Amino acid sequence: MPKFIDDATFGSYFTEFAHTAWRLETRRGYASDRESPRYRQFRSTGTIPNDGHRPWCANVRTQVRLGKRIERVRIVDQAPTPEQLYLLASAAVNNAAGEDIRNLWRADADHLILPREDFWLFDSRQALLLHFDEADNYLGAELVEDAERVLRYCQIRDAAWHHAIPRTDFAAQVASTV
């Protein structure tokens, strides 16, 4: 049976890690994004507010100043969904705060046999496997500390990161396809 963390402790994982926090995002969209004012603004204007003052960005800046890294790879369909285009645009604010967000085409992810799981990996020793329902609603995070499963996530990270494309280069590829 999965060991779910208390959602109230979720944020502590992003301050207590020692070296790296790394995420793989595989979904075509997230219900929480679709419900946000930022997403509605993006859909109506094509722009993202410069909201680098958000708590997430403030924490990223703090962790980066401490010498830590926060990175993620987002899997993107060809053609990208509206939610994926939103995440690509909104990543600029996170990048400016110090988070390194890269992208990988879904066909390349499939070629690498990457899973369709979303997870955070902390210091290559524990992970949070994120669970969602069919409507992309977040259900909870499963704490993974089993060495064999964590090693699998490390291998996934290494493969995805090696082939992922920095956000600005990827955005140029997307722009050239529309």
Rank of each mutant, 00 (worst) to 15 (best):
M1Y: 03
P2R: 10
K3N: 14
K3W: 11
K3T: 12
D7L: 13
F10M: 12
G11I: 00
T15I: 10
T15A: 07
W22Y: 15
R23C: 12
R23P: 08
R27N: 12
G29D: 03
D33N: 14
S36R: 09
Y39Q: 08
R40P: 02
T45M: 14
D51P: 12
G52S: 09
A58R: 15
V60P: 04
R61L: 06
D77H: 15
Q78E: 14
Q78S: 15
P80W: 11
L85A: 03
Y86V: 03
Y86G: 02
L88G: 01
N95F: 02
E99K: 13
A109S: 12
D110R: 15
L112E: 12
I113S: 14
L114I: 07
S124K: 06
R125Y: 00
L130Y: 08
D133E: 09
Y138S: 04
V144Y: 00
V144Q: 01
V144T: 01
A147I: 03
E148F: 03
E148T: 06
V150W: 02
R152P: 01
Y153F: 11
Y153L: 08
I156E: 03
R157Q: 15
W161F: 07
W161K: 06
H163L: 10
H163V: 07
A164F: 06
P166K: 10
R167Y: 00
T168P: 00
D169A: 14
V174E: 02
V174Y: 12
T177Y: 05
